[in-house]
């Protein structure tokens, strides 16, 4: 069973339907135990970093994620749900979960938000992007992480500057774009993730 953590952030119906489309049984939940014990946990997130972190913490989402990763349970952050995995963000004084080293910054580009379909590339073998590296995915964001630990597998994209579009670090996966809104390539990414569980 895949759980989608419902902590009041955004449209999770699309993520639910997209996961169901690739054959998963999905439960939307804000229950600690359910989220902790699910085979896979999706952490969505839209809006501002600070309000996301506050809402996430209010359902003990921070603890759920950390506990899951300790025992190697697959967890996927999407959009701001990826950003909260880093140490902090320029957008807010609230601290992130610090599971990924580094900081989320406002992109340097003349037009923001970065909205639309952009290429995601990697030179590494990443499970998430198996068969779809170089495809375009749908982004909606103004902030992104530019760098992290060397040990973390990353895929990048470019908008004004190069930023991290996807990461894999052990059981933790995260994407800055919206796979649930990225057509066939996005569904394939979700399928890749689900298959890894």
């Amino acid at each position: 069973m895949i759980a989608i953590l419902d902590y009041g952030s955004g449209n999770i119906r699309s993520a639910q339907r997209a996961l169901e489309r690739v054959g998963s049984q999905v439960e939307v939940t804000s229950q600690y135990e359910v989220a902790l014990n699910a085979d896979g946990l999706v952490v969505p997130g839209v809006g501002a970093f600070g309000s996301c972190i506050k809402q996430l913490n209010s359902v003990r989402g921070d603890q759920v994620i950390k506990e899951r990763l300790k025992v190697g349970r697959k967890t996927l952050g999407i959009c701001v749900g990826m950003q909260v995995m880093f140490e902090r963000s320029d957008e807010s004084s609230d601290t992130g979960l610090g599971l990924l080293a580094g900081q989320v910054k406002r992109l340097s580009a003349p037009v923001l938000p970065h909205i639309g379909w952009n290429e995601v590339n990697t030179t590494l073998q990443m499970n998430l992007l198996a068969g779809i590296a170089g495809e375009r995915f749908y982004f909606v964001h103004s902030y992104a992480a530019l760098s992290t630990n060397k040990e973390v597998s990353i895929a990048s994209s470019y908008y004004g500057e190069t930023f991290i579009a996807a990461v894999e670090q052990g059981a933790l996966s995260a994407v800055q774009f919206h796979p649930e809104k990225s057509g066939d390539a996005g569904l394939q990414l979700l399928k890749n993730w689900v298959s890894s569980i």
């Binding site: 909205i115 639309g116 379909w117 952009n118 290429e119 590339n121 375009r136 994209s157 470019y158």
Partner: peptide, 8 residues
């Protein structure tokens, strides 16, 4: 690596 023009 460039953002694609959206057709809506």
């Amino acid at each position: 690596m460039t953002l694609a023009t959206r057709i809506i």
